[in-house]
Simulated scan of single mutants.
Amino acid sequence: MLGLTSGKIRDIPWVSLTLFCLTYGIFGWIAGSLFDDWQTWILAHQKWFLWDINEAIALRMSQWFGAGLVFILMVILTAPLRIVQILFGSWLRSDTRAFMSVFGWAFTAVLIICWFHHFAKLFVLVSAGMLCHLDLQLCGCRAWQVFIILTILGLGSYLLGVQSFNL
């Protein structure tokens, strides 16, 4: 898949990949410690769902929530710049939209300040992913290869962290 030779293996950014795996493994550990709380919340709010939820389903939903978050982060980190330009490029062309953007970002800043302890965890996950993304691109990997590598390592490290919490 990657066409790795012994020279290219030495060029792989092992330090940033190790930091990435440790970061997502620790996130899995933290998420594993919160599964009981998430499961209780899901069972308390099961009227929001269209089907009956028992404890086993609520546990699986809470486990898949963390894995889904990791996958969404990998998609965001490896999204090409062109998609970002398409989504936000024409948004700021009118004064009303620019005002709405400033208002939205101000609200986001207030949420970040109020829930900084949660934002800091997300920021560490994104930073580790960005570091690996840049290092893998400098290593010569294409965008789809970076996505596959980061997704496999991110989900694997997350699941390893969850399993190590459950031991």
Rank of each mutant, 00 (worst) to 15 (best):
A98T: 12
R97S: 14
S127W: 11
A79W: 05
A67W: 03
V102C: 03
F49M: 13
F49W: 12
W64A: 14
S62E: 00
I86N: 03
A56R: 07
T40P: 01
A120I: 15
Q137G: 08
M100S: 05
W41F: 14
G129R: 01
V102P: 00
F49K: 04
I86G: 08
N54V: 09
S94W: 09
S101Y: 04
F119A: 10
L92D: 03
A128F: 06
F99G: 06
A58C: 03
I42H: 01
Q137N: 10
R97L: 10
K121Q: 11
L111N: 12
L122K: 05
L131P: 00
G140H: 07
L111K: 11
A120R: 11
L131H: 05
L50T: 12
V75D: 02
L134W: 10
L43Y: 01
W64C: 09
L43F: 04
A44F: 04
S127I: 09
C141L: 14
M61P: 00
I112F: 14
G140D: 09
I53C: 01
T78W: 05
I57L: 13
Q46L: 08
Q85K: 09
A143K: 05
A143S: 10
W51K: 13
S94D: 15
A143Q: 13
W51E: 15
S62K: 01
L92P: 00
T78H: 06
A58L: 01
W64S: 13
A109T: 13
V146K: 00
T78E: 07
C132P: 00
W91M: 06
A143L: 07
